[in-house]
């Protein structure tokens, strides 16, 4: 059963059984994703903070100015 078919079925069901859904359902965007069982996005760990994330955040300014941008062009 592919995603588009499921989406179609869901939207049809909403249309045909309005009593089972709230009013806003007629305007719903339906998004279908496959559940990733094997490949999960790798997490970055932050050591003793015990926090983690799928991505990190950069420093707000360049740490040193040793790269000559004019030579890069």
């Amino acid at each position: 059963m592919n995603k588009n078919q499921i989406k179609k079925d869901v939207l049809t069901h909403i249309k045909e059984h309005p009593k089972e859904y709230p009013f806003i359902s007629r305007f719903w965007d339906v998004e279908i994703d496959e559940i990733q069982t094997s490949v999960t996005e790798s997490y970055i760990d932050f050591g003793h903070f015990n926090t983690q994330s799928t991505h990190s955040s950069p420093f707000y300014k360049p740490i040193s100015k040793i790269i000559d941008l004019s030579k890069l062009v």
Partner: peptide, 26 residues
Amino acid sequence: NSFGVIVSTQQEITSETHCGIIQSGF
């Protein structure tokens, strides 16, 4: 996320003396 840039430059950086460039790109 602004990460993962890989750049190759012909500039020779042989020591820290090359640092300190003021440029509008930074």
